[in-house]
Design a protein around this nucleic acid. Structure first.
Lengths: 107, 107
DNA sequence: CAGTTATATAACAATCCGTTTATATAAAGG
DNA sequence: CCTTTATATAAACGGATTGTTATATAACTG
């Protein structure tokens, strides 16, 4: 699962999560994405490359601009993997329920 | 959101995800977790520390053993954050639906 | 108490990450 | 064309991460 590596580590950086939060409001160009941050343009360009590599965003070409928007691929993949944890956690929870139920019937 | 940093970067490592997958099957001690991997015990201990710090696992003390199990905290937090992306993605998708609907009526 | 088992910690090297500055490319506009 | 605008890439650097070996701690076992 190479993509999970890329997806999770892309999301591990707060700047990248902030970029995604911005893109959740709609498409934005690189320059627009630089503005809100106290970082240089090359830094943002690299973050975008990471996000693109992880399948979290896609980019069009529009003249000299490269507007970015969210892509569903990585989120889907992450959700699927997390599904395993959720299932196990709820199974544990049910087991705990059983334990509590057992304690109750023992009263 | 400091915890999201910790949670996502904990999940970014394939060994740690494998440990979680193992714990999804049920509690395990450190030694049990070392076995399936081609890594030393200190390496696994450190991975466990990272997972614990991220709120992905908890540990009990049982004599000299420290059995680990999954914890729900981090998964919940991640799910909440991803919720924002999911919502935006489905909004984009609906917008696309509108566009396609528009194209249809224009025919 | 002495030895063994389970785990943690320390110290260190190698690699990876995020940032910056400086520079390149490529389209747009006069 | 020449300049400006938008973006990408390269080189360099500091700091974090991941692995190793060696050692410490702490609880069982006889």
């Amino acid at each position: 699962m190479k993509n999970l590596d890329a997806a999770f580590s892309a999301l591990a950086d707060p700047t990248r999560r902030a970029i995604l939060a911005r893109l959740a409001l709609g498409e934005a160009t690189v320059t627009e994405l630089v503005e809100p941050f106290d970082l240089t343009q090359p830094a943002i360009s690299r973050h975008l490359k990471v996000l693109e590599g992880a399948g979290l965003i896609v980019r069009r070409i529009e003249g000299t601009k490269r507007p970015c928007r969210l892509a569903p691929a990585a989120v889907t993949e992450i959700d699927q993997w997390l599904g395993m944890l959720r299932k196990a956690l709820s199974a544990n929870y049910n087991r705990l329920d059983d334990v509590l139920a057992g304690m109750k019937t023992e009263e």
